[in-house]
Design a protein around this nucleic acid. Structure first.
Length: 614
DNA sequence: GTAGGGTTAG
């Protein structure tokens, strides 16, 4: 009878009753006949099974059946909806079944179908899905970063007269935090209090995380400390609260505070978890403190927490970043040996890490392998990375770039603005402005509009290829269109400097100051220019001006000054002692020295000195 | 439900 039922040769209504009491039996039968060849149950029969499963609260099994219908059997979401609607039996079925269909759609990211189900039920059948279904739908929109769509659909939900619950309010807070609208998120918190919905620890955590993400740790800490008072002692922080704050400090490089928060949570009886350690390890690596990072790794192992792929990805990324490909490979091998799976982060870290360290052929091979295994996203990130580094590796790589692009096109993908931008910039930097222009023309032919970044590449290319006059004309045109920023003007300024055109340099710099379009790059360009055209002293004066205008000198400022001073010392225009004195002065001013410059210039100078003294 | 890792064009 069961087989007959599955092929719907007998009345669905009559079997409803037969099966509703024993979902186990139904599932067992279904699985057994499923193994037979030519087995193809009708839509109606599967829909009845779904009703039975929902009735007995076996939501996961119901989801599996729905996925079967939608994914393998090729029914559309609306087919399934009709099937469920037609086989709906008020004595047995629950309205909840339609919520589950929406969950099935969102679970594989098909937000449009999910919405169509909601609309169809409302418009055609006068049925309103539950607020939970809406919440699930809205949550998926946020997690897939479709925030515009989120707000539109949220408004739709409200206008249908739904009453928001705590989950809905939290979603709104979440969305506001994601859009970095922190103060609106906080006012949402008060609105919740006003309408009698108690914010919970999730609400707090999301706002605290939002504060940390915009680097306002003080605010995050304040909220954490006031959690008790603000909730009449109902809510206390959990591990997520601490992890958010620890992450905030780690991103800012303040590892001391990050670690003391870890101690604080431990004292409160909240155990640091895998995420706590992963966050701290990443924070130390970001600062270049490998020793501390590895200390925490062994600490976590001692506590019985094994590092996972996230921790390994982090380690490998930062090792590649500082050029230590040997140790990076060692960790990769260890990852493979201990069966820790690669994910899309690992793949991306590998392709970028190999490329930026000059292992372009290896990067290309690995990428090819990934394509073969169908493990590459459609977002062109890896391809654009390859194009970028290939073009920077010299002009013999043009053929390989072509290969990457051809493969891309063969896979049905087309170049995006980043591909074009990377190529235009790469060719400009190689000095082959004709190729850059060819790419630009292709881009226009493809109907793609150039953006500011691309215009800036071209301006920079013109300046670097000694056509500053042309660049100036172009910038004037861009200004008329309002299409320029500090980067555009920095390129032009740099071009004037390269031509030793002091009048234009000063003129443009004053204009930039007036327009408040000055950043640390602007000053670095000028520091370099005055070191070359004038004296180290003049360069240092520009730096003083930089500090006075509250722009912090960075490691590039350091390199510019120290390198220029050293060059002058070699031709006897500057003493070696003064180079060291310059270094000391920069250190006192809090300028971060550049490691390479220090090792190459200052270190040896100091070594020589101390040798002479001893 | 909220927390951790990567990033490509000036």
């Amino acid at each position: 009878m069961f087989l007959k039922f599955l092929r719907s040769n007998i009345s669905a209504r009559s079997v409803h009753f037969e099966f509703r009491m024993s979902p186990e039996l139904v599932l067992g039968f279904y699985k057994r006949v499923g193994l037979q060849t030519n087995f193809s149950p009708s839509l109606e029969s599967v829909c009845i099974l779904i009703h039975v499963m929902i009735r007995s609260r076996r939501y996961d099994d119901a989801l599996v059946f729905m996925n079967n219908l939608l994914q393998t059997m090729g029914y559309s979401h609306l087919d399934v909806l009709e099937g469920l609607w037609d086989s709906y039996n008020p004595e047995i079925s629950c309205p909840h079944v339609f919520d589950t269909l929406i969950r099935a759609c969102t679970s594989f990211g098909d937000m449009n179908s999910a919405h169509e189900v909601i609309i169809n039920l409302r418009m055609e059948k006068g049925f309103h899905v539950s607020v939970h279904a809406w919440n699930n739908f809205l949550n998926h929109l946020i997690t897939s970063n479709e925030l515009n769509s989120f707000w539109k659909k949220y408004t739709e939900m409200i206008s249908c007269g739904y009453t928001e619950n705590i989950y809905t309010y939290n979603l709104v807070v979440y969305a506001l935090c994601k859009e970095m609208r922190l103060y609106e998120a906080i006012s949402m918190f008060y609105r919740m209090l006003k309408v009698g919905i108690h914010p919970n620890v999730v609400t707090f955590n999301m706002i605290i995380n939002g504060a940390c993400k915009i680097s306002d740790i003080e605010l995050g800490l304040k909220l954490y400390r006031k959690m008790g008072i603000m909730s009449m002692e109902y809510i206390s922080p959990n591990s997520i609260t601490f992890n958010c704050l620890i992450n905030g400090y780690s991103k800012l490089g303040n590892m001391k505070s990050a670690e003391s928060l870890k101690d604080e949570m431990t004292k409160m009886g909240i155990k640091p978890n895998l995420i706590t350690y992963a966050t701290l390890v990443n924070g130390y690596l970001r600062k270049g403190c490998k020793k501390d990072a590895f200390r925490l790794c062994s600490h976590m192992v001692d506590k019985g927490i094994a590092p996972n792929n996230v921790v390994y990805n982090s380690i490998i990324h930062w090792l590649f970043f500082e050029g230590d490909t040997t140790t990076a490979s060692a960790f990769l091998s260890y990852m493979i040996k201990t069966n820790i799976l690669f994910d899309k982060f690992t793949n991306s870290i590998l392709v970028t890490g190999l490329s930026r360290n000059g292992y372009l052929n290896e990067a290309l091979d690995y990428h090819k392998w990934l394509v073969g295994k169908n493990l590459v996203d459609k977002d062109l990130f890896l391809e654009n990375t390859l194009v970028h580094y290939l073009l920077r590796s010299g002009n013999e790589s043009t053929l390989k770039v072509k290969q990457v692009l051809d493969d891309m096109i063969a896979r049905g993908l087309s170049l995006d603005s980043v591909t074009y931008g990377s190529m235009i910039d790469g060719f400009s930097k190689q000095g082959s402005i004709s190729n850059a222009i060819r790419v630009y023309d292709d881009m226009i032919k493809e109907g793609k509009k150039p953006n500011l970044v691309i215009y800036n590449s071209i301006v920079d290319g013109l300046c670097k290829n000694l056509s500053v006059d042309l660049a100036k004309i172009m910038v004037d045109e861009l200004k008329k269109l309002g299409l320029f920023d500090v980067v555009t003007l920095n390129s032009l300024l740099n071009g004037f400097c390269a031509n030793w055109n002091i009048n234009e340099v000063l003129n443009l710099f004053f204009q930039m100051q007036e327009g408040n379009l000055v950043n640390e790059v602007t000053y670095n360009i000028l520091v370099n220019f005055f070191c070359k055209i004038g004296s180290i002293q003049e360069g240092r004066e520009i730096m003083e001006m930089m500090v006075a205008n509250e722009v912090a000198p960075n490691s590039i400022t350091y390199t510019i000054l120290v390198t220029n001073a050293f060059k002058k010392s070699k031709v006897g225009c500057y003493s070696r002692e003064k180079v060291i004195e310059l270094h000391d002065d920069l250190m006192v001013k809090g300028v971060k020295p550049d490691g390479q410059t220090y090792d190459k210039i200052v270190g040896p100078l100091i070594g020589e000195e101390s040798f002479e003294i001893s």
